[in-house]
Design a protein around this nucleic acid. Structure first.
Lengths: 224, 224
DNA sequence: ACCTGAACACCGTTCAAGT
DNA sequence: ACCTGAACACCGTTCAAGT
C-alpha cells in the first residue's frame, strides 16, 4: 500500500454537553466555509479554528488532525446524499425499470447539484485526505438500495444483477464527478443528465432478460 | 472561483543541454517513484530531489514549485494516454459503431491499466494540484478523435453527436476512475470492462438515427 | 550554465496553564 | 469539562556561493 499509515480518523471525543456539540458543529461548518472561500490547498487548521470562533487547541480536542476533520465533513455530506438516494429507491419499489433508472439518475444528480459548491469542494478534498473508506461505504449503501429496487422490477430479470448494478452506479457516479471536475458547463449539464437517463435505460434494456410482465417487448427510447 | 490564484505552472526553463535534459527526466521519474513509494501526502520536494540525485535547489531551477512538478508529470502521462486513444480511433474510421464502441472502451481501459499503479498515483495527485486544465485539454483531444470516428460510422447518424459523444466519454472516464479509486477489485474489473462495452453499444444503439446502410434494424446485444 | 544546501517562512500539532 | 495560544517540528521555497 502506497497509502500513508492509517491514523485515528475518528473524532477524538463525542460531544456530551451542549456547548461541546455546538463547538463540534461550528468547526465542521467553518471547515466548509473555509473550503469554499480559500480552496483545499489553503485550508489551514488555524483558519478553520478562527472562523469557528475557537482556538486551534480546541479544534484538536475534537479532531486528532486535519485529515480527521476533512474526513468528518465528508462523512456527514455523503450520509445525506446516501439517504436521499435510498429514499428515492424505496419509492420506486415495484415500478418498471425504465422509470427506476430515471428516478435514480435524477435523485443522485439532484442531491449533488443542490449544494454544488459544497459538492465540488468535497470532491477536491477526496484526494487530499484518504476518504476511500467513506466512498466505499457510500457505494455499498447505495448499491444495496438500488439492487433491492431493481430486483423488485416486474418487467425485468438479470443474469447477473450484481455486476449490472455495479456498472450502472460506477458510470453514474463517475460521470457526475467528471462533469463537476470540468466545471459543469451549464448549457451541457442539463442535457447530459437527460442523456444519462437514456443511457441507463438503454443499458438495462440491453442486458435484461425480458419477463412475462413486459407487454411491449422493446420500447423505443426517445433520442436527443 | 475557490481555486488558488493560478501561479506559473509551466516549467521554469526548457532544458537546452544534454545534462539538463537528463536532470529534467530524472526529476520527473523520481517524482513517480516517490509517489508510488510514499503516496502523494508524503511527497516532499526534498525527497524527490534526493531520489533524483540532485539538490532541492536544482529541482527548483526546473520547476517553480511543487505544483508545477506534479503538473508536468500529469501532463506527460495524459499525453501518452491521449495518443493511444487517438490511434485506436484512427483505426476504426469507417467501421460499424458497435465495433467502434468496443475499440474505444478497450483502448482507454488498456492505456489506464498497463501502468495501473501510476494511474492510481496520478489520480490521487489530481486533487492535490490543480490539473483541471490538463484534464480539459485531454478530454477535448479525445472528444475530437471520437467525434471524428463516430461521424464516419456508415451505420448511424445522431441528432446531436456532440452531446452523445460527451455523455459517452464522461461516463467512460468517470467509471474507470471510480473503479481505480475503489481499488479495482480484480474479479470485477474485467467483467465491468465488458459491461461498459455493452453499455456504450446499447446507448449508441438507442440514440442513433438508423441509416440505410444498417441491414439489421436492432441487433440484439448479448447479456452478461 | 548548472548545481549546492543552509536559512527562512509557514503550517500542523502539542501541552502547560487557565476557566 | 472545556478552552487557550505560545512553542516545536517539518516542509516548501529562496539565494548567496560554488563549479
Amino acid at each position: 500500500m502506497a497509502s500513508v499509515a492509517q491514523q485515528r480518523l475518528a473524532a477524538r471525543k463525542t460531544p456530551r454537553q451542549a456547548r461541546s456539540a455546538a463547538t463540534w458543529d461550528a468547526i465542521l461548518e467553518a471547515t466548509i466555509q473555509v473550503l469554499l472561500a480559500t480552496g483545499p490547498g489553503r485550508l489551514t487548521t488555524t483558519r478553520v479554528a478562527e472562523r469557528a470562533g475557537v482556538s486551534v487547541g480546541t479544534l484538536y480536542q475534537y479532531f486528532p488532525n486535519k485529515q480527521a476533520l476533512l474526513h468528518a465533513v465528508t462523512e456527514r455530506y455523503l450520509g445525506i446524499v446516501a439517504a436521499t438516494v435510498e429514499q428515492a429507491c424505496q419509492e420506486q419499489i415495484g415500478a418498471p425499470i425504465g422509470q427506476m433508472a430515471g428516478a435514480l439518475v435524477e435523485a443522485y444528480w439532484q442531491a449533488k447539484v443542490v449544494r454544488c459548491d459544497v459538492t465540488r469542494a468535497l470532491y477536491s478534498v477526496a484526494a487530499v485526505v484518504d476518504t476511500a473508506d467513506l466512498a466505499e461505504a457510500f457505494s455499498k449503501r447505495v448499491e444495496r438500495a438500488t439492487a433491492a429496487m431493481f430486483a423488485s422490477a416486474p418487467d425485468a430479470r438479470f443474469a447477473d444483477l450484481e455486476i449490472v448494478n455495479l456498472t450502472l452506479l460506477t458510470s453514474l457516479f463517475g460521470a457526475v464527478r467528471s462533469l463537476f471536475d470540468r466545471g459543469l458547463p451549464k448549457r451541457w449539464a442539463c442535457g447530459v443528465q437527460q442523456q444519462l437517463i437514456f443511457m441507463s435505460r438503454a443499458y438495462l434494456e440491453a442486458v435484461r432478460i425480458p419477463s412475462q410482465a413486459a407487454d411491449d417487448p422493446r420500447p423505443r427510447l426517445s433520442a436527443a
